[in-house]
């Protein structure tokens, strides 16, 4: 079973995302901010990360930059999942190593289509 780390400071969003990802047959771990997420990754690299941008302690972009510097930090597919919906944010995220980008609000179809895009579910 593939592992998914959901990183979001909102418990509601984590819950919604968890439900969608569980249906898609992923095993879920959760983190409330970038720092927690980094610790989770250092103990075990997930296959895919759904990543919020604006969070306390360490935001999503900073987390991603740190992650990609780590040995094996290039393994997880990272999908930003954020209310930041302008071209500047999107290009920054891609430059920092994001594989995909979801602009909130999202639904199951969008998440699944992005998972297909990064090769995490079969097309």
């Amino acid at each position: 079973m593939k592992q998914c780390l959901i990183v979001d400071d909102s418990s509601v969003i984590r819950k919604v995302a968890r439900r969608i990802m569980e249906e898609a047959n992923f095993e879920i771990t959760e983190a409330e901010d970038g720092q927690q997420a980094l610790e989770a990754c250092r103990s075990q690299m997930p296959d895919v990360i759904l990543l919020d941008w604006n969070m306390p302690v360490m935001d999503g972009l900073e987390f991603l930059r740190e992650l990609r510097k780590d040995p094996c930090g290039d393994i997880p597919k990272v999908i930003f999942c954020t209310t930041e919906n302008d071209m500047d944010h999107i290009t920054q995220a891609i430059a920092a190593g994001a594989n995909e980008y979801i602009m909130k609000p999202f639904d199951k179809e969008i998440i699944i289509s992005k998972l297909k895009e990064v090769g995490m579910v079969e097309a």
């Binding site: 071209m87 999107i90 891609i94 994001a98 602009m103 179809e109 969008i110 289509s113 895009e117």
Partner: peptide, 11 residues
């Protein structure tokens, strides 16, 4: 623009 389209195409 999010359904099925890779973000790179969007950009």
């Amino acid at each position: 623009v999010q359904r099925g389209m890779p973000v790179t195409y969007l950009v």
